[in-house]
Amino acid sequence: MKNILVIAEHDHATLKTATLNTVSAAQSIGGEIHILVAGSNCAGAAAASAKIPGVAKVLQADAGHYAHHLAEDLAVLIAGLAKDYSHVLAPATTFGKNLMPRVAALLDVTQLSDIVGVENADTFVRPIYAGSMLATVQCSAPVKVITVRSTAFAAAASEGGTAPVETVPAAAPLGVARFIGQELTKSERPELTAARIVVSGGRGMGSSEGFKLLEDIADQLGAAVGASRAAVDAGFAPNDYQIGQTGKIIAPELYIAAGISGAIQHLAGMKDSKIIVAINKDEEAPIFQITDYGIVGDLFKVLPELFAELDKLPPA
């Protein structure tokens, strides 16, 4: 059997956690695992990849034109390497979703998006229709190009391995796309997809000032802040807070939803959370069908009370 190639998501110096979940999906397929770190001055991320137990080899492609992870340029590199592999996996983040279909098309193969289960080396489970159904699909392509939903696979360990790092030549830049800039949301809080607790607001929050109530509670709990699409569209929260079918998929230990009705497109992004709490003034709101603890009430009254209660709480 051929080996499996995992495409690392990284910021050149460090690995993004979703890479570790992707390695773990690769492990459940079985086979020797290699990791590709393509970047610019990315020795740090390559060294971090080498420490993942179970990784046999790290491929490092270092070039200026990989500095901004442009899919146009990375896809050429990966398609060139892929013929030696049975599977090529990347996280189903905006990085992987942008890149992997391009890789697959260059290889003339189909692509599997967002897998949540591995049945065997060619059969996988993936959600369809906003997660309201799970499809088991068999793929006959000679190379399986896959994106992995990180909430479905535990993160692989990040320490203990000693894989060799091998340099691979960069591919020539395609020259059709140019990076101009980024506007990243700055926050001291944990990253949404990695947070143990997420507090999330919907249209019911009423305004971006309303979100302040949630932010205070998030800071008490060391939580990340999320939002529904309606809250993002209304400008209460930045786009990268959106949770759902077309936003981020998360599965924290605790998810607190305030002023969110519970549309299927929203549930798609959070229904695998361990404990779900909802605060909503409408007792018929669909979100209550999946909550462990629900409070029917006005969030502008309940959230300040929650803040006060948490403030009184002795350390666990």
Binding site: M133, L134, T136, V137, Q138, I276, D292, Y293, G294
Partner: peptide
């Protein structure tokens, strides 16, 4: 690609108020 099976995911039970 062949779809072998389509099924609903396990249902989550509603908890308490």
């Amino acid at each position: 690609m062949t779809t072998l099976k389509v099924a609903e995911p396990p249902k989550r039970e509603a908890g308490i108020k």
